[in-house]
Nucleic acid binder design. Sequence first.
DNA 1: GTCTATACGTTGATAGAC
DNA 2: GTCTATCAACGTATAGAC
Lengths: 188, 188
Amino acid sequence: MDTQSTVREQLLDHAITLMMLRGYNGFSYRDLSELVGVKTSSIHYYFPSKDDLVLEAVKQYSEEVVRALQSIDPALPANEKLSLYTRFFGKTLGDGNQICLCGMLAADIETLPETVREAVQAFFRTNEAWLAKVLAQGVEEGTLVAKGKPESAARTLFAALQGSVIASRLFHTKSRLEDVEAMWRVAA
Amino acid sequence: MDTQSTVREQLLDHAITLMMLRGYNGFSYRDLSELVGVKTSSIHYYFPSKDDLVLEAVKQYSEEVVRALQSIDPALPANEKLSLYTRFFGKTLGDGNQICLCGMLAADIETLPETVREAVQAFFRTNEAWLAKVLAQGVEEGTLVAKGKPESAARTLFAALQGSVIASRLFHTKSRLEDVEAMWRVAA
DNA sequence: GTCTATACGTTGATAGAC
DNA sequence: GTCTATCAACGTATAGAC
């Protein structure tokens, strides 16, 4: 509830939402100010510069995703794990035409400081490592297919998911994400 | 040569380059003004609004890519066609850390007018249709692998390429694009 | 912590002289 | 076609009162 969360939390949440929609250069302290109901000068109290704000946003977003990954039962078959992952990857799409924060910031990366690049890289590596494990498990079980090393396949899969969530929004459809998942599943 | 091209051509070329680097909201008429050597008011003579400029940029970029696709010898085996495609897809990466203009604009799409969305969609469809044909050919020849319908596989492949070029820039490496290509090649 | 006030460059855009 | 001049709005950011 907004009435329970602190101003700082609201600012961070709305900043994340806005960036997932319009990107780093597509939102302003004023937008945030109007959404949360504080003056822009108050935002600077919590986040001295916009760079500070993005960095905190990436950190919080990454933690949320890690928690989501940990919430997936390790005992599940790999194809079901991938299914859950794909679903929550595309969840924000239906909510408000949003894409993955770190996919968006990767597009904006040349306008961002090095600290943000490193945080976004860390996010990519975490997700790719998790997917690599799932792919390895799936190959062993016979529920997923993955050519070559699991690490390479995972990088390609993650890139396909990032690209698909962008294309899904572009075309106002969700099916493109499902196309990706189907490509790594064992044919029925 | 810059000395041969018209001011309009220079403006469009630099606008494309800048957007491939920083995105739509990451460059200004002033940037363009300094690069080309005319005042910002002169840019408005050619492109009344920034929206006009993006739309023209997408159209020119799309034409260039179509020409590149047509320059690929239809007689080539499918795996070699894909290799050429992957190479020119990642070419701008080495030049100046640029990603595909339409991949970038797809990320910025929620801040752009509907006309641009349609132009970017058209670009996606053109590329996916071309890839679908190549995949179909490759499956028949036995040089490429593609699960399911060629159209679905092509959408996934294109998304993977778009995602990979973004990730490649993020990590300052080109190998991620090659990972993608390898995934669709028949194992040696 | 939050506000008012303010600084100051940037932005896209227009009017009109040449 | 290109310029000068100008615009109002917006951008991030700071100082200081409360």
